[in-house]
């Protein structure tokens, strides 16, 4: 029987990502990994990560924080690497050399997912490998010193789009990767946040129990890159959900469902003001920038609700 997703029962399970990793104090990535592996606690797991914070900090020299077989190959090919492992597993299973039901999970940052690893991710998903790809999205290349990525939000200050007299932080909009992955037509795509852990764990469990290629994008605050407090990772991820900056939804076989609807949609200012990377947009005369961010969020949220409505009615028609 599957282990119930409550903390009392889960705390009896082994955490397959140990302490002693060298991720920064207050980093949300190890918490996200812990939640993923706890949700998958009933199965042996083989994982892969692309180059990134999680990778460099979890396998320094001869020390590994992983208690499961885990592979790092390069920045651009975690999905390709893991799809190769999954193919080998299927071959060995066919030959009767393995009889265990093993789950394959890639856990990669936004740099290795949105940008550098995008082609291998897209390919692995299109080929339909039986694997879950999780992106822990902290919105920049934090490992190498906070360079902008495709996941960096508009107007955020990074070292390669520094806010100043020339540009007001990142001039471009964020790439909506979750929607791009849903457009691959794979059986399961979701967006999650560690602040809403039962939702996150339910999504991971649903994903690993669904055959085929799956993708989950998980919001992962980074206090170094966001210039925020070391103690507010969970608080910020909660605010991201409550302001609809990071809506929690899933697309299961083409049907969109918003899994958490905030009782009261908070203004985006509450999320922005806690982060130093947005400090410059609070200067006088820049009110229209906050307004622009708010409008983009409202538009996305409305579209998502509409999408949910349309796909639900489509399901009834079938």
């Amino acid at each position: 029987m599957a282990t119930p997703l409550n903390l009392k029962e889960l705390s009896k399970q082994e955490i397959r990502f140990t302490a002693g990793h060298r991720l920064c104090a207050g980093c949300a990535a190890p918490t996200v990994v812990k939640m993923i592996l706890l949700a998958a606690c009933d199965y042996p797991v083989v994982a892969a990560s692309s180059t990134g914070c999680l990778e460099v900090s979890s396998c320094i020299s001869t020390y590994t924080a992983w208690k499961i077989p885990w592979i790092h190959n390069a920045f651009e090919n975690a999905a390709a690497t893991l799809s190769g492992v999954e193919t080998m597993y299927r071959a060995l299973k066919k030959q009767g050399k393995i009889d265990r039901d093993i789950k394959f999970i890639a856990i990669c940052g936004d740099g290795g997912t949105y940008d550098i690893g995008f082609q291998s991710l897209s390919g692995a998903m299109e080929r339909g490998h039986d694997m879950l790809y999780v992106c822990y999205d902290n919105g920049a290349y934090m490992n190498t010193g906070i360079q902008r990525s495709g996941a960096t939000p508009t107007f955020a200050d990074t070292t390669t789009c520094p806010a100043g007299a020339v540009i007001p932080g990142k001039p471009q909009q964020r790439k909506d990767l979750t929607r791009i992955m849903a457009a691959h037509g794979i059986p399961y795509v979701a967006q999650a946040s560690p602040s809403h852990w039962p939702d996150l764990m339910k999504k991971v469990r649903k994903a690993i129990e669904t055959p085929g290629a799956k993708f989950i994008n998980i919001f992962t605050p980074c206090n170094r890159g966001w210039r925020s407090r070391t103690d507010d990772a969970i608080l910020l991820s909660r605010l991201a959900v409550e302001t609809c900056f990071w809506p929690l939804y899933e697309v299961e076989n083409g049907v969109t469902r918003v899994t958490v609807k905030p009782k009261e949609k908070k203004p985006i200012v509450e999320f922005l003001k806690a982060q130093g990377r947005f400090k410059h947009i609070f200067e006088p005369g820049r009110e229209q920038m906050i307004e622009a961010i708010q409008q983009a969020i409202d538009k996305n949220w409305e579209r998502l609700l509409k999408e949910e409505e349309i796909s639900a009615s489509g399901e009834k028609a079938e």
Partner: peptide, 8 residues
């Protein structure tokens, strides 16, 4: 050695 990071 799985989980050897515990030594740190």
């Amino acid at each position: 050695e799985a989980g050897s990071a515990m030594k740190i």
